[in-house]
Amino acid sequence: MASDTSTNVTTPTADAPNLLDAFPDKRQALEEYLDSLPLARAAGRKKGFLIQSLHRAQAIFGYLPEEVQVLVAKKLELHLSEVYGVISFYSFFTDKPVGKHKINVCTGTACFVRGADIILQEFARQLKISEGETSEDGMFSLGGLRCVGACSLAPVVMVNEDVEGNVEPPMVKKIIRRCMQEGE
């Protein structure tokens, strides 16, 4: 992403209306948060608030689209490239929308030795997406993560916010079916 496009990105276009305008209350929530930061007292150190601001923004919007990045950059007086550089470095942040149901298979060591790779393969096979992808209907995202600290229940799958322990391949289908039922 070139930083000199930053003046253009907020302009809504016919096929991609500005996300911030589409969700005024979300925009307001983020602006209120950014305005509440003690930036004035942090001369030269405003960047120190960047990561927490991105955490908040992602909690509000679900991901970090360009419009949101521009807003954060402006408030913290940073270059858009600095903001994007941080987003691309940390795996927690994403600039792409994620699925309604987030399936994250733990691929930490304890889960690995108890067969996490087979569970991950099985989700990929059933959902027809690879790790890091979202299904076309926007229902599922599939990811891997490193140790949620529930190693005693290995292999572990995070289904949205819940920890599912001792997962075996035949359970994969059931987990997916349960999510679909909840989704209706």
Partner: peptide, 25 residues
């Protein structure tokens, strides 16, 4: 409190400090 954002290398102390400063770790 400052929060990490999913980067193992940020456990290394100089990377951790860079991360607190809002930089790539």
């Amino acid at each position: 409190l400052k929060f990490g954002a999913g980067a193992f290398v940020c456990g290394e102390e100089t990377a951790l400090i860079a991360s607190i400063e809002g930089k790539r770790g």
